[in-house]
Deep mutational scan, measured.
Amino acid sequence: FDIYVVTADYLPLGAEQDAITLREGQYVEVLDAAHPLRWLVRTKPTKSSPSRQGWVSPAYLDRRL
Rank of each mutant, 00 (worst) to 15 (best):
R42W: 02
W55Y: 10
T21I: 13
V30Q: 00
D62M: 14
R64K: 12
V41C: 02
L31R: 02
V5K: 06
R64F: 15
H35D: 15
A19D: 09
Y27L: 15
D62H: 11
L11S: 12
I20Q: 03
T46D: 11
S57K: 05
R42I: 04
D18I: 04
R52W: 12
A15P: 12
Y4H: 03
Y10I: 08
K47V: 12
A8K: 15
R38Q: 06
F1A: 09
A33P: 07
L37N: 13
R52N: 08
D2R: 09
A33V: 05
I3E: 08
L22F: 04
S51R: 06
K44L: 15
R38Y: 09
P58L: 02
V6S: 02
D9V: 03
S57N: 15
P58G: 02
G54E: 04
P12C: 07
G25R: 02
A34I: 08
R42Y: 02
G14V: 11
I20C: 04
R63F: 15
V41S: 00
V30E: 00
L31D: 00
E29V: 10
R42D: 01
T43K: 01
V30P: 00
I3Y: 10
L37E: 15
R63G: 09
V41D: 00
L31K: 02
L61F: 03
L13C: 13
T46C: 11
F1S: 08
R63W: 10
T43E: 03
Y60D: 03
Y4C: 06
Y27Q: 08
R23K: 13
A15C: 15
R52C: 10
T21Y: 13
V56L: 04
R52M: 14
W39K: 00
L11T: 14
V6L: 04
Y4M: 05
Q53D: 07
T43A: 04
G14T: 12
T43I: 08
S51T: 09
T7Q: 05
L11R: 11
R23E: 10
S49E: 15
R64I: 15
L61E: 01
Q53I: 14
Y27E: 14
V56P: 01
A8Q: 12
P12F: 07
R64W: 15
A15L: 11
T21K: 09
A8F: 07
V30R: 01
D18S: 07
P45L: 05
V28N: 00
V30D: 00
W55P: 01
S48R: 09
A33R: 14
R23H: 12
V5R: 11
T7H: 05
D9T: 05
P12L: 08
S49V: 11
I20L: 12
V56A: 05
P45K: 08
Y60T: 03
I20T: 03
G25C: 04
G25F: 03
D32R: 04
G54D: 02
G25M: 02
A33S: 14
P12E: 06
A33I: 05
A19V: 07
V5D: 01
Q17G: 12
D62L: 13
R63C: 10
Y60L: 06
V28C: 03
A8I: 08
V56M: 05
S51Y: 07
W55H: 03
A59W: 06
P12V: 08
S48M: 12
R23Y: 15
Q26C: 07
H35P: 03
L11G: 08
W55D: 01
P45V: 07
A19G: 14
L37H: 13
G14S: 13
D18W: 08
P12K: 06
V6N: 00
G54A: 05
I3Q: 06
F1L: 10
W55V: 03
Q17L: 12
E16R: 06
L65K: 11
P58I: 04
Q26S: 06
A33E: 05
Y60P: 01
F1V: 08
D32S: 08
Q53K: 09
L61C: 01
S57G: 03
S51P: 09
R52L: 14
A33H: 08
A34Q: 13
P50C: 08
G25H: 03
R64S: 13
D62I: 12
I3A: 05
D32C: 11
W39E: 01
Q17Y: 11
A59K: 11
V41N: 00
R64G: 11
T7I: 15
T43V: 08
R38W: 10
S49Y: 10
P58W: 02
L11M: 12
D9S: 06
Q26R: 03
L13Y: 10
V30I: 09
G14L: 13
V6I: 05
K47T: 12
Y60A: 05
V6Y: 01
F1H: 12
Q53R: 06
E29F: 12
V41W: 01
Q53T: 15
A15Q: 12
E24V: 14
A33F: 09
R63K: 15
R38I: 06
P50G: 08
T21V: 12
V5N: 02
R52I: 15
W55N: 03
T21D: 10
Y4G: 01
T43Q: 02
A15G: 14
E29L: 09
Q17S: 13
Y10M: 04
S49Q: 14
W39G: 00
T21H: 12
L11W: 13
W39D: 01
Q53F: 08
V6G: 00
I20F: 13
E24N: 07
V41H: 01
W39F: 03
P36S: 08
T7G: 04
H35Y: 08
D9R: 05
R38N: 05
D2N: 10
R23T: 11
V41M: 00
V28M: 01
D62E: 15
G54W: 05
P50L: 06
G14P: 15
